[in-house]
Simulated assay, not measured.
Amino acid sequence: MAKALVIGANGFIGSHLVDALVSAGHEVTAFDRFSSQEPTFDAVGVRLFRGEFLSRSDLEEAVAGQDIVFHFLSTTSPATAESDPTLDIRTNIAQTVELLEACAAAKIQHFYFASTGGAIYGPQGKERYSEEDRALPISPYGIGKLAIEHYLSYFEARYGLQSTILRISNPYGTRQHPNRRQGLIPIALRQIAAGQPVLQYGDGSMVRDYVFVEDLVHMIVPMVERDTRHRLYNLGSGGGQSIADILESLRRVTGVSFAVEVRATPSTFVDKVVLDTSRMTEEFGTPELTRLDEGVAATWSEILENP
């Protein structure tokens, strides 16, 4: 079993990843600020490292003695990167390069990066996107993720730092921070809980690949336990749901006939993104996926318990 460092361990995906790694028997160090709350993961025996991602010395101390590193922290969301692209460059990209330098110096065996499958392929008009398709992002968030992917190639060529890129679709589920305005499902559910209209961009036909977060981390953990065939994987449900489909699920689960506020679709939004996940399923098998209504119900229950 590996000594694993999770950067962003108290975040949405990171906290579930900590639980899954511990369950699989790995020795986990959880890196996060842990400033506003206690750890959100359930696992016991996890070493907590209270650190700042923007601190080079904190990163160097955290990676020392680790076997593998999972980088699941982002200082921006698609919306904040859009409003200030330089923030993404100055923090996410620049600091990830510093993290990679620290990992190379510490002789980390493997580095796993949470990229984006929802924004990185851009508006190419395909029914679904495979890892063989070109990455043509038009949003600052997607551009930043692609830049980091290229830096991973550089660090492998220059320093021998092995890495795996995880292009994740549109995850949803429990433990999504209420102040982080990312993801249609959690944002809409919180609007419903507050008695507010649900915001809809466009006519409801925009399609995304939604994957329940617990299903997602169960796709990731097996990659740690064997030599993988590829260094890039699409991770998602492999199917698409329109905004209209999602809103109907929210109505079924909540029992609320909420109002909808329609706004124009931002120019950097892509009309349809569904990931081809056959590379992952052929190598690791077809995962059991949580039904949309079941995943929405779990998310809704947590929001009601923690308004």
Rank of each mutant, 00 (worst) to 15 (best):
S301H: 13
T265K: 12
A264V: 11
A119C: 09
A147N: 06
R47P: 02
P178R: 04
E149P: 01
A102Y: 04
S169N: 09
A119M: 11
L289P: 01
V213Y: 02
L304D: 07
D32T: 03
S205L: 01
S267I: 10
S139P: 12
S55E: 05
A20H: 04
Y121E: 03
I185P: 02
E305M: 13
Y201N: 11
L17E: 01
P78W: 00
L5D: 01
F53Y: 15
Y201K: 10
A298T: 08
L136A: 08
S205I: 08
A81R: 07
R291W: 10
E305C: 08
M223Q: 09
D271K: 15
R190E: 01
L304R: 15
M219W: 05
K126R: 15
V217Q: 03
A43L: 08
E294M: 07
G204M: 06
L247T: 13
G25H: 11
S301V: 14
E156Y: 15
F72N: 10
L184H: 02
E101S: 04
E305S: 14
V28L: 03
Y210T: 05
L275S: 02
G142M: 08
D19W: 11
A20V: 07
T91F: 13
S83G: 03
W300Q: 04
A264I: 05
L199Q: 14
H150M: 10
W300M: 03
M280P: 04
D215W: 02
N92K: 07
P266Q: 02
R175G: 00
S169R: 09
T116M: 09
A81F: 10
E283K: 09
R33N: 09
S139F: 01
P222N: 00
G240P: 11
I138T: 15
Q196P: 07
M1R: 15
V46I: 09
A193R: 14
Y112P: 09
G122Q: 07
S153G: 04
L21K: 09
Q241C: 02
E294H: 08
A64R: 15
K107Q: 12
E127V: 14
G51C: 03
E98I: 12
A43F: 10
